[in-house]
Structure formats: C-alpha cells, structure tokens
C-alpha cells in the first residue's frame, strides 16, 4: 500500500491536514499517513534530514510513498531527501504536484483503494482542478 507524507513549514498545519485526510480515507488505519513540519526551535521550516527519517520509517510499513509538500523549501528539502535515500528506495517515492490539503485528501482516498504510487500521485494532482465556486 502507498503511504503518504505531508510536509509543511508548520507542524500544526501538517497534523491538521493528516487528521482530515485520515478521516476521508475511511479511518480504517490501512493507509499510513504521516505529517511533519517545523524546526527544532519551534519555528517554521523543515529539514531534508527530517523528511529522510520519516521516509525511512514509512517505507518500513508501506511499499511506496507519496510526499505532499507545501511550498518553497519544503519542496526543495523533499527532493533533497529523496536523493539521500538508497537508490532502491528512491524509486519508491514521488513528490505530488498538488495543493497540499486537497492533494493529501485525494491521495488518501486513492491509496485506500489499494492503487499504486503513480495512480495515487495522479489523483493528488487532480486536486488542482477541484472548483470551489463557479465564477
């Protein structure tokens, strides 16, 4: 099953998004969804090392992982963390090109259906097209 890693500048943001995504994925606990964010001094930001540690942890239970980063350095650090994984694991991780909250939701639902990583990533990407009003 595909695991999901939500990476935000803020730990509260990441945890909130995980909570919503978990609820939407049926709450069966089948899909592993983790959220990380914030730096060691309680400020905003996330390090590549923290993402790397989380990826390794998730890969112990999940075959593949989709990362949902927020903006800027979260994306750079996520790319960086994938590069630091051993090559056999690096191929099991993708960064979603998606808005973080809606993408995490869509990914969680798709993952709960047992879909593979590419399908889960594609679903997350579709979150970009979710309309909120019609004007």
């Amino acid at each position: 099953m595909v695991g999901i890693l939500v990476v935000s500048h803020s730990l509260s943001a990441a945890e909130g998004i995980v909570q919503i995504a978990l609820e939407m994925s049926g709450g069966s606990g089948m899909v592993k969804i983790a959220g990380i964010g914030g730096n060691d001094t309680g400020g905003l930001g996330i390090t590549a090392q923290k993402i790397l540690d989380s990826l390794k942890q998730i890969l112990e239970h999940s075959n593949e992982v989709l990362i949902l980063p927020d903006i800027g350095s979260s994306i750079l650090s996520a790319r960086n963390a994938i590069e630091l994984l051993p090559p056999e694991d690096a191929s099991k991780v993708i960064i979603a090109d998606a808005p973080i909250l809606e993408g995490a939701l869509m990914a969680a639902i798709e993952a709960s259906l047992g879909s593979d990583l590419l399908k889960v990533a594609a679903s997350a990407g579709e979150a970009r097209n979710l309309r909120k009003t019609d004007h």
Binding site: G43, G45, T47, A48, S77, N80, L84
Partner: peptide, 18 residues
C-alpha cells in the same frame, strides 16, 4: 553537507547542502 541539511529548515539547507 549533511550537517547543513539537518540544521537548516529553509531553502539554504538543501541548496548549500547539495
């Protein structure tokens, strides 16, 4: 590289680290 990547939670960490 590894130190700055672990210590800096901004873009400078991954960029200078790389």
């Amino acid at each position: 590289a590894m130190t700055i990547m672990s210590a800096v939670g901004g873009s400078a960490g991954p960029l200078f680290g790389t």
